[in-house]
Simulated scan of single mutants.
Amino acid sequence: MLRSELIAKLAAEYSHLKHEDLEKIVAVILDEIADALAEGNRVELRGFGAFSVRERKPRVGRNPRTGEKVHVEAKTVPFFRPGKELRARVNGGTDPEAR
Results as ranks from 00 to 15, higher is better:
1 M>K: 07
2 L>A: 10
3 R>W: 04
6 L>F: 00
7 I>P: 00
9 K>P: 00
10 L>H: 00
11 A>K: 01
17 L>S: 12
17 L>Y: 11
18 K>F: 04
18 K>G: 06
20 E>L: 09
20 E>W: 04
20 E>Q: 10
21 D>Y: 09
23 E>F: 06
23 E>C: 11
23 E>A: 13
24 K>V: 13
26 V>Y: 00
27 A>W: 10
28 V>H: 06
28 V>F: 04
28 V>T: 14
28 V>D: 06
31 D>P: 00
31 D>G: 08
32 E>K: 13
32 E>F: 02
33 I>A: 02
33 I>N: 01
34 A>S: 14
34 A>P: 02
34 A>M: 11
35 D>C: 10
39 E>I: 03
42 R>H: 08
42 R>G: 05
42 R>Y: 08
44 E>V: 08
44 E>N: 11
45 L>S: 08
46 R>T: 02
47 G>F: 03
49 G>A: 04
50 A>P: 00
50 A>I: 02
51 F>S: 02
54 R>M: 09
55 E>D: 15
55 E>T: 12
56 R>W: 10
57 K>L: 13
58 P>H: 14
58 P>F: 03
59 R>K: 12
60 V>P: 01
60 V>I: 15
61 G>Q: 14
61 G>V: 15
61 G>H: 12
61 G>S: 12
62 R>S: 07
64 P>M: 06
65 R>K: 15
65 R>G: 02
65 R>V: 13
67 G>T: 05
71 H>S: 14
72 V>Q: 09
73 E>K: 12
74 A>H: 10
75 K>D: 08
77 V>S: 15
78 P>G: 04
80 F>K: 00
82 P>Q: 07
82 P>W: 05
83 G>Y: 02
87 R>D: 05
90 V>F: 08
90 V>L: 13
91 N>L: 12
91 N>K: 12
93 G>L: 11
94 T>D: 09
96 P>S: 13
96 P>E: 06
96 P>C: 12
97 E>C: 11
97 E>R: 15
